[in-house]
Design a protein around this nucleic acid. Structure first.
Length: 742
RNA sequence: GCCGGGGUGGCGGAAUGGUAGACGCGCGCGACUCAAAAUCGCGUAUCGAAAGGUGUGAGGGUUCAAGUCCCUCCCCCGGCACCA
């Protein structure tokens, strides 16, 4: 037998699978469907690093196992290619973003294909392809049509470096999520999506999906449901979750914006700067209102600790019950009433539910995004671009530098901006803002069902067949962004009859990051990026795949370790050499049967719960077991290859062929186990005296409690440790342990 | 502050309340070899010459039996944060 040469066999099989279309999903199949999804990558200029494939390999294992289990599997890939990084790189290199995107996706595609992830490449999509973003724009017009998209003048977070407005979610600790620059506030007209209208259902429907608890909790926190009451203190309506404490309310506090509306004066409390400070600030407005419970006059204060955009922007101050109100009352000598009677929940107000979630700022003032497909007409106002004129394509221009004025670079291209109003035929101007890069990713999982459709964004028939996604794996960092946004889009589409399910994803899991050796995050600037090409050259793709699954628990972050790759490589070498032990004359005894059945059970079970590290470990144990024998049966080897096939697709396919098997191992049925073969014929029990292990005892598996007890007590070690004492109690756990208590 | 998730050998990590450290890396010894690499075999928590003792962040508790369950606390990671 030849030596294991991954280079040769990996190239060979990748070619064969591509030619045969082994991994292409069929829209018409009598098999049950299975839809696996990973977050499609942003094709950056840095290329793929070894962290990218971790989730791809994991979902590939699930997908390959499902195929072997008889499912018609959809496991697609595409490119989330709009975005700042490409645009900035384009500016620097004076290339068109579209050209750069083409180069980058070519690199990513080649790198991913080297790893034999069983993606259906015939369904590859790209958010920057006009054939794709035509439908992103079309879907945007649906939002507009149903009054879920609107333009509003508002204070937005502005990143002075990227020259772009940011959504609330994209601001971390007051800094731009991408570049870390401190954001500024700017007043600007922005397109908004009314995600708040879906707050209630986005929250409640989490009960209907299979997501990790931490993902649900994070989304719930972000949506921020709270049940409370609106209560009128004279002209001022306050929101409180504790209406029962109203008898203790000794003042009313309002946000500066609210004070200004009320009195035309903000009393020098500037929300922006003072809100940063944790110190309580406030000014008495001089206004008095009546506490509806106590009928007493209370003063109205402008404070820095109440937000205008939550609740009503006004609260009742209950210093006896609320820590913040207490701090404020103490500082400004306001009355504190302790031990007041509690009121009923709705005695003085009306019950109401409020959410922290804000509407989604949907405009960006940059070039490399989907143009928002509307035309502004002096006569007709905002006019949607008619469907027949979609897509509104990005003009190819040499200049698309962002501007300091906060206007999109598209605004400078007169020939593009000036158009006829589709309604009245008069002079119109195109909207020059583009969509955020969350737009294309908010619906891409729908397009995969029907990626080449040029009549619809996807046909209902295809969607009915494939949706919902059965298993979606992605990063925790998208929990309150992409994951929430795409649920919102899908729900809206469901409401208007475009998609068949209210929730897009049945099950969601998350992977941990792969860090550089030493535990730092991998980044080009730190120079610690490991390119999978290097590893594939040194060890082969199968070794890389097995290593990434074996290195640690899938959901935890873990540091890369090149030295550790040798373990998985040795394991594959061992499986390779095992082929020479297959013999017609070999047979299996009961222990061989047990090992085989147990391996099938453990590996299959571990895969389902993301226990890839223990699945690999179990296969190592089994191959070590087989290797210790002189000869093995074809059945033992065949089953080992099947279990390993989803992890190491090339080597198992090659060995499958060597073994003279029919067809592809990846189309062979997944092995099943026989529960009755799992019982051991003999077992070793730990014999404890007072809870400490003093001896072991080998018994037959069907020994009775009394037999085991007698045998244990007869052991010389036990006699020695008992030293004549009479056992008070003997606990026997059959197959496991005997504990003799004296 | 609140909500999640963690803390186990030299390292990555295993363990339905039942022999802690599976599996892998590394290391040590041996075999093969002129030699080395590769491979194979044996060993590898810790203290101790041994008998035996001690060990899963700290301290209590429940139990015949605790890494696992309960209580108090410390530390690390992630999220939210003056949200009324």
């Amino acid at each position: 037998m030849q030596d294991y040469d991954p280079k040769e066999i990996e190239a060979k099989w990748q070619k064969i699978w591509a030619e045969k279309g082994t991994y292409e999903a069929k829209n018409d199949s009598s098999k049950p469907k299975w839809y696996s999804l990973i977050e499609f990558p942003y094709p950056s200029g840095e290329g793929l690093h070894v962290g990218h494939p971790r989730p791809y390999i994991a979902m590939d294992i699930i997908s390959r196992k499902r195929r072997m289990q008889g499912y018609n599997v959809l496991y697609p890939i595409g490119w989330d290619a709009f975005g700042l990084q490409t645009e900035n790189f384009a500016l620097k290199t004076h290339k068109q973003p579209a050209v750069i995107t083409k180069e980058n996706t070519d690199t990513f595609r080649r790198q991913i294909q080297n790893l034999a992830i069983s993606f259906d490449w015939s369904r590859e999509i790209n958010t920057t392809d006009p054939k794709y973003y035509k439908w992103t724009q079309w879907l945007f017009l649906k939002f507009l049509e149903h009054d879920l998209a609107y333009k509003a003048k508002m204070n937005i977070n502005w990143c002075p470096k990227d020259k772009i407005g940011l959504a609330n979610e994209e601001v971390i600790d007051g800094k731009c999520e991408r570049c870390g620059t401190v954001v500024e506030k700017r007043e600007k007209e922005q397109w908004m999506l009314r995600i708040t209208k879906y707050a209630d259902r986005l929250d409640k429907d989490l009960d209907t999906v299979d997501y990790p608890e931490r993902v649900k909790t994070q989304q719930r926190n972000w949506i921020g449901r709270s049940e409370g009451a609106l209560i009128k203190f004279g002209d001022i309506e306050v929101f409180t979750t504790r209406p029962d404490t109203i008898f203790g309310a000794t003042f009313v506090a309002v946000a500066p914006e609210v004070a200004k509306k009320l009195t035309g004066n903000d009393f020098g409390i500037v929300a922006e700067t003072d809100r940063e400070s944790k110190e309580k600030k406030g000014v008495d407005t001089g206004l008095k209102v009546t506490n509806p419970a106590t009928k007493e006059q209370v003063s109205v204060w402008v404070v820095n600790y109440v937000s205008a955009d939550y609740g009503t922007g006004a609260i009742m101050g209950v210093p006896a019950d609320d820590e913040r109100d207490r701090e404020f009352a103490l500082k400004f000598n306001l009355p504190i009433v302790e031990n007041y009677t509690k009121a009923g929940f709705e005695d003085f107000g009306t019950k109401v539910t409020k959410f922290k979630l804000r509407d989604w700022i949907f405009s960006r003032q940059r070039y490399w995004g989907e143009p928002i497909p509307v035309i502004h007409c002096e006569k007709c106002g905002v006019v949607p671009v008619p469907e027949k004129d979609l897509p509104v394509t990005l003009p190819e221009v040499p200049m698309y530098e962002p501007t300091d004025t906060g206007e999109s670079p598209l605004a400078t291209i007169d020939s593009w901006v000036n158009v006829e109003c589709p309604k009245c035929g008069g002079m119109g101007k195109r909207e020059t803002d583009t969509m955020p890069n969350w737009a294309g990713s908010s619906w891409y999982f729908l397009r995969y069902a029907d990626p080449h459709n040029d009549k619809e964004f996807a046909s209902m028939e295809a969607l009915k067949y494939w949706m919902p996604v059965d298993w979606y794996n992605g990063g925790m960092e998208h929990t309150t962004l992409h994951l929430l946004y795409s649920r919102f889009w899908n729900k809206f589409f469901f409401d208007i009859g475009l998609v068949p399910t209210s929730e897009p994803y049945k099950k969601r899991t998350s992977h941990g990051l792969i860090l550089a050796e030493g535990g730092e995050k991998m980044s080009k600037s730190k120079g610690n990026v490991v390119n999978p090409d290097t590893i594939v050259n040194m060890f082969g793709a199968d070794t890389l795949r097995v290593y990434e699954m074996f290195m640690g628990p899938f959901e935890q972050a873990i540091a890369w370790s090149e030295a550790s790759l040798i373990g998985p490589r040795r394991f594959l070498e061992r499986v390779w050499k095992l082929a020479t032990k297959v013999s017609e004359t070999a047979s299996m005894n009961t222990e061989d049967e047990r090992m085989l059945n147990e391996s099938i059970k453990k590996v299959g079970g571990d895969i389902e719960v993301l226990g890839f590290n223990t699945a690999v470990s179990n296969m190592m144990i089994y191959s070590n077991y087989l290797d210790a024998k002189d000869v093995i049966t074809k059945s033992e080897y065949e089953n080992l290859l099947k279990l390993l096939a989803p992890f190491a697709p090339h080597i198992t396919e090659e060995l499958w062929e060597t073994l003279g098997q029919e067809g592809s191992v990846h189309e062979a049925p997944w092995p099943t186990f026989d529960e009755s073969k799992l019982v051991r014929s003999r077992c070793t029990l730990a014999i404890q005296v007072n809870g400490r292990v003093r001896a072991t005892l080998e018994t037959t598996a069907n020994a009775t409690e009394n037999e085991v007890k007698a045998a244990a007590l007869a052991l010389p070690e036990v006699e020695k440790w008992l030293n004549g004492a009479i056992p008070k109690k003997v606990v026997v756990v059959l197959g496991k342990v005997v504990n003799i208590v004296v």
